[in-house]
Computed example of a mutant assay.
Amino acid sequence: MQIRLSWPSGHLTASLDDTPTAQALTKALPLASTAHIWGQEVYFDTGVSVPRETNAQEVVEPGTVAFWTDGDALALPYGPTPISRGDECRLVSPCNVLGRLNGDPGLLASVRDGDPVRLELADD
Score class of each variant (00 low, 15 high):
P80E: 14
R4A: 02
P51N: 08
W38M: 13
L91C: 01
Q40S: 14
R100G: 12
D123L: 12
D18R: 10
R118S: 10
L12K: 13
L91V: 00
C95H: 15
S15I: 05
L101I: 03
D115T: 01
S33N: 04
C89V: 01
L91G: 04
V48Q: 01
K27A: 15
P30S: 09
E58S: 14
L74R: 06
R100D: 13
K27T: 08
A73S: 15
T81L: 08
C89I: 02
G86L: 13
A66K: 10
A75M: 04
A109P: 04
L25Q: 06
Q2F: 14
V59L: 10
E53H: 08
Q40C: 13
R90E: 03
G63H: 07
C95V: 06
C89L: 11
P30D: 05
L91N: 01
D70W: 12
L25E: 07
R90Q: 08
A73D: 01
S110I: 01
R100L: 14
D17G: 08
T34C: 07
I83C: 09
P8A: 04
A24N: 00
T19I: 02
A35S: 05
S9M: 11
L121Y: 03
R100Y: 11
I83A: 12
G39K: 08
T19S: 14
V50R: 06
F67K: 09
V50K: 07
E53F: 03
E61V: 12
T21Q: 07
E41P: 09
A122G: 07
C95T: 02
S49N: 12
T64G: 11
E61G: 11
C95L: 09
N55Y: 05
A28K: 02
V59A: 12
A56Q: 13
E53A: 13
A28C: 03
L25W: 06
Y78T: 02
A66E: 09
D87V: 01
E88I: 01
T54E: 15
T34V: 13
L74C: 07
T64N: 11
A24M: 00
E61A: 15
L25N: 06
G10K: 06
T26M: 15
A35K: 02
